Simulated scan of single mutants.
Amino acid sequence: MRLDRRTLDQIDSPITSAYQLLDLRESDGNLLDLAQAAPPYPPAPVVTEHVTRVARSADGAGYTEVPGLPRLRRAVAAELSRDYRGRIEPDNVVVTAGCNQAFSLVASTLAGPGDEVVLPLPYYFNHDMWLRLTGITPVHLERGPDLVPRAADAARLITPRTRAIVLVSPDNPSGVTVDPDGIAEFAALARRYDLALVLDETYRSFRDSAEPAHRLFADPDWDRTVVSLHSFSKDLAIPGYRVGAVVGSPALNREVCKLLDCVATCAPRIGQEAAWAGLTHAAQWRAERAADIAARRTAFAAAMADRPGGFELLSCGGFFAWLRHPFTGRPTEDVVRELVVKHDTLVMPGTGFLGADRGTLRVSVSNIERAQIPAFVGHLRDAGQ
């Protein structure tokens, strides 16, 4: 058989490539796995108990409505309306099998082959991959020295083919958060050119502020421009349940549901039930977990302050830190390989988020216990000698 050239020409998953390096390890020592970000704790007991009850029920394995369980959609709408001091209705919510699927469905609803979508650089690799796989051209927006993307720079990239601007905040991979004023400027830019502003808010619960991430939902006409994407994987520690959400206009969501019906029929019921239980009954547990991740970030940033081994912390937020290694002219893939083979530390090369080598690494600080940070710093010092 013949395979499609567009898929063949796409990169393999950077996550898969990173974990293949484990086969090269020279020791059986304890591995510091800081590659794929995952909650370092199990779901809240109330979530596990609810899922157990559902699994034993007569309809626990059945389909749901294509846009999702009505009570989950109501819960998502209610929480976002409260947290953002705006107005979101259940009809604005479509439940998906994770936020990656949410992005893919939205991108394919907004754009087609030959169209363009603006992505800040570094980008989340699955966003760039999906656009290329569907014939959409990613147009990369260079960030400033503080790694914060700016609307004024994005304005210079807009062409008649542009269909959307994508922001991830807090960012994956850099951890950088765009403040409410910055997000408002992107929304104004999108509105001016009749574009969609697609906000991936997977890490919204892991910001260093209790204030709303943005003010866009307070605008009665928000859904003419804004599409907000959400994940419950990190927030509720249920990554394997695969549940996320699209928050957008009913008109957009009708088209999203056409695609969702084709690729999944509906998001897995068990994941939807888990998300409902977490959103409605685990508020204190979620706050405590977010505080734990914040403490890990703070300890990590403090430990990196003196650039151990010459490794420089460029930014840190959400679940991630973005580092620059000290080996000028040395391929970053080689640096990552040595870290895992010689120093029992697995991180992600920045090349997977850039399409080029700028000497950067992504570290999932969510994965590291505070007691493990001195060992990580020691590994960097050893690697930098």
Rank of each mutant, 00 (worst) to 15 (best):
S27C: 01
G355D: 06
S364K: 03
E211K: 15
D208Q: 09
P374F: 00
P212W: 05
L197E: 04
T177S: 14
P113W: 02
N100Y: 11
E116R: 13
E288K: 01
R2W: 04
A274K: 04
A190F: 09
P349F: 13
F103K: 03
P331Y: 04
L354F: 06
A290M: 01
S57C: 10
G144L: 05
P268A: 13
L380C: 00
L121H: 14
W222K: 07
R286D: 06
R87E: 05
G86D: 02
R6M: 10
G318Q: 09
P120S: 11
P349L: 12
V66L: 10
H230M: 14
I136N: 10
L147S: 02
Q385V: 00
V95G: 01
R74N: 10
A187C: 11
A301P: 03
V336N: 05
N367K: 14
A35S: 15
P138Y: 09
A267G: 08
G98W: 04
T7R: 13
L22G: 04
A184W: 02
V66K: 11
L346D: 14
T7I: 08
L121F: 04
V336L: 05
L236I: 11
P14N: 10
T162Q: 08
G378P: 01
R56P: 03
P180G: 11
T159L: 09
L119V: 09
Q10S: 15
H379P: 00
Y124S: 11
A245R: 08
T177V: 12
P43A: 12
T137Q: 05
Y84T: 06
S27Q: 03
P67S: 08
G240S: 05
D208T: 07
G60D: 15
Q284D: 15
H230A: 10
L141N: 03
A37V: 07
G359P: 05
C266A: 12
Y124N: 09
A290E: 05
P149E: 06
C99L: 10
L21A: 08
V363C: 11
P374G: 03
G68S: 08
G86T: 03
K234G: 12
E116F: 11
R242I: 04
E185F: 02
F311P: 01
P268R: 08
C99H: 11
A97Q: 07
V46W: 04
A38T: 14
L21M: 11
G350P: 00
S209E: 10
A218M: 01
R82S: 14
V263A: 06
V94P: 12
